[in-house]
């Protein structure tokens, strides 16, 4: 079942410069992907590719000067971008949950974690304080937090990074969401802690059949914890498909370059296209945004590249890929 379907999403940053000229940064340029229930989708890309912006655009959490200027985001068939604000608000935190980066700064520092869990539950459900508390303890326990009843009284600053991230996931899961979006859930955590958090996320998806989107720059996380992946470059998805297929035969030159740059495949001293600075969103090239640094670019790349289907859901947006 398709849980989330994003179609041709465009987000721009529109601002005025000191000299009063209007400047437009085209941050998202036609993002399309689908997420199935029971699946973990990895959204990968480098700095400035628009990964987090995709999540905030879908969730309706953009703040000026960023603005969605086109596209649809269908959650269980309903367009989140066309909904009235109140309706989106009701969905957020209940059916759709977001786990953000930097767990420490995402928890209310002046509220005990138990009360934060109870608060979010009762904001969306008509339940007694008692029932909410029981659910919170249960949730902490299921996330492998030792002595959950006592931890309910802990303050956010008393938690380690890994513990805070678990509490944040607990907050996200309190209302049994259908869709979980995790933005860099393990960045900044130690590898041994990272493994615990990711195990937890994957088990959760397997057990409850929800859909999860993991935003990350770490291809190791994608390789081992995601079912499908979508690779972003300059605000567009250049390649998507099942993880094993994409790793085995990366078809877009950017994906190939990215996977080739992982320490596992990197040959030091071998000739390679050197990674450049993030693309300038104010002046993206016409046609394929990657064409100015693509080793295989030709004249036809000045035209918008087609989405080429390569079978089994593997799609690459490139002129050079043969179906």
């Amino acid at each position: 079942m398709t849980l989330l379907s994003v179609e041709d999403l465009h987000t721009h940053f529109i601002s005025r410069d000191l000299d009063n000229q209007i400047r437009v940064a085209r941050a998202l340029n036609g993002v399309s992907f689908t997420l199935e229930a029971g699946q973990v989708l990895g959204l990968v890309g480098e700095t400035g590719a628009g990964k987090s912006l995709t999540a905030t655009s879908i969730m309706g959490l953009l703040r000026p000067p960023a603005r969605v200027v086109g596209g649809r985001a269908l959650f269980q068939g309903q367009d989140l971008l066309a909904m009235p604000e109140a309706q989106v608000n009701a969905l957020r935190g209940r059916d759709i949950a977001l786990v953000v980066q930097s767990p420490k700064s995402s928890l209310d520092p002046l509220t005990r974690i138990g009360n934060q869990l109870i608060r979010i539950h009762r904001a969306h459900r008509q339940v007694s304080e008692r029932a909410a508390r029981d659910r919170a303890v249960e949730m902490l326990a299921s996330l492998g937090i030792p002595d959950p009843a006592r931890r309910m009284a802990a303050w956010p600053h008393e938690l380690s990074g890994g513990m805070a991230q678990r509490v944040l996931i607990a907050l996200a899961l309190m209302n049994e969401p259908r869709l979980l979006i995790a933005d860099e859930p393990t960045t900044g955590l130690d590898v041994t802690v990272q493994a615990q958090i990711l195990d937890l996320l994957r088990d959760l998806v397997r057990r409850t059949g929800i859909g999860a989107m993991v935003i990350t720059h770490d291809l190791g996380v994608v390789a081992h914890y995601c079912d499908a992946m979508a690779v972003m470059y300059a605000g567009a998805i250049v390649e998507s498909g099942p993880v094993r297929r994409v790793f085995a035969s990366p078809s877009h030159p950017y994906t190939a370059n990215l996977i080739g740059a992982t320490p596992e495949r990197l040959q030091l001293g071998a000739a390679r296209t050197v990674g450049g600075p993030p693309p300038n969103l104010f002046r993206l090239p016409e046609g394929c945004a990657y064409r100015d640094r693509c080793p295989r670019a030709g004249a036809d790349c000045a035209q918008p590249p087609p989405d080429v289907a390569l079978g089994q859901g593997h799609v690459a947006r490139c002129h050079r890929v043969a179906a």
Partner: peptide, 13 residues
């Protein structure tokens, strides 16, 4: 001219 636009921009901000 550019300087005039700049002054206008600063004035607005």
């Amino acid at each position: 001219p550019r300087w005039a636009l700049r002054i206008a921009g600063i004035t607005r901000r």
